[in-house]
Design a protein around this nucleic acid. Sequence first.
DNA 1: TCCATAGTTCGATGGTAGTCGATCTATTCA
DNA 2: TGAATAGATCGACTACCATCGAACTATGGA
Lengths: 229, 229
Amino acid sequence: MDAEVSIAVVAALVGDPARARMLTALMDGRARTAKELAYGAGVTPQTASSHLAKLLRASLLAMERQGRHRYFRLATPSVGHAVEALMAVSPTRARARASEAPLDGLRLARTCYDHLAGRLGVSVTEAMVRRRVLKPSGRDFLLTPAGTRFLGRLGVDVEKIRGERRAFARQCLDWSERRPHLAGSLGAAVARQCLDLRWVRRVGEERTLVLTLQGLRGLRTWFGINWKR
Amino acid sequence: MDAEVSIAVVAALVGDPARARMLTALMDGRARTAKELAYGAGVTPQTASSHLAKLLRASLLAMERQGRHRYFRLATPSVGHAVEALMAVSPTRARARASEAPLDGLRLARTCYDHLAGRLGVSVTEAMVRRRVLKPSGRDFLLTPAGTRFLGRLGVDVEKIRGERRAFARQCLDWSERRPHLAGSLGAAVARQCLDLRWVRRVGEERTLVLTLQGLRGLRTWFGINWKR
DNA sequence: TCCATAGTTCGATGGTAGTCGATCTATTCA
DNA sequence: TGAATAGATCGACTACCATCGAACTATGGA
């Protein structure tokens, strides 16, 4: 098969409405289960299963098993770029939505669900690993005793959020950074604290975050991060 | 129709092998006739006509009538970007070809058929218009008397190339720049002279050109162009 | 005026792929 | 161990669409 046709194969995959909806649903970098994607795309789980298998086989999506769930996410950043480039040549509404949330803003700092993602999320997570606050462990993070004290000084009540029913400190893979960031109830608490401390501020209705001046200082003194741009 | 589905419409258009071949054939920015595209794509003219009509209706292509010919080209740079982004997620060979001829190189300076295109072609053309060497006129350029003398000093024998059978000084629209550059026998002669004067050099087998040091000086003294990068 | 050529339109045909119901497997939880 | 849920597989149905032959329109040249 020659090069021209191989782009047609990929385009044809994106060219089905149900698959296009699944791909755009995954554009925020979060992983989702097959059922979520099925209902989001407006098709039955059987149909979705067939679509997801095709997207997997073409390496547009990546999949991770977790119990009886299967989590799907965009396989590489270039998949996201391709979807965006298609949005740019689509009529009116797709273009409008794409320009509302410019990629660079999204990529630098955004929330993913309720925790920090994008470059900021990854930076903070990696700083916590470097400073022995977190330790990667399987698909989770372990919070060290020193880490518990550290977060306590920052104003995060670790004992309280341990009591919550949801996963405590999950690794969440980032579409744009290809590196994991902190999710779960701990991730949400850290994000909440960053907002409360006025380190970051939400812009618009979107998931985009901007770093404040206090945030710049806070990241340096607490995490040793010298944020640029 | 919502945004997700509208990207599917575009992707489905690119998702047909014949149409994908037509689009990639147009990636160099040149306009081509329906027949050229038909045979290039390996389908009959009837089939190609149907494909081209669809691509036109979706504004992926633009068309210009010229006598009994119809010239098709990519409608906007973003169409080219979308095709490239799809190449980037396509298996092996498409990716290899895309990286062989990086977009930036192509965009800065390249030949289109036999004349200068890309940013260089547009810059030189616009400089000639600014200096009253050329005057836009319909789909052609007119060469002024002063322009004839100017090109003569540069070493282009205008009278001789006026004798050639092909169009003399055509405006050729550039995909990447969205602005016209000089084509036709005069455009070819100017490009030949730039190569003879060692202002530009071909790199590889591709249409990419690099500007030499002499070229940098030549552009400044002859055309008042301060080329950057 | 006539012929050659570029391109489109129409209609028939055939293949492909999305869809869902029914059924099956795997995992979790009580 | 059994019930519930996530998901995959299979098969049948349907609808769409790429393709090409034939016929048509339009432009250019002799």
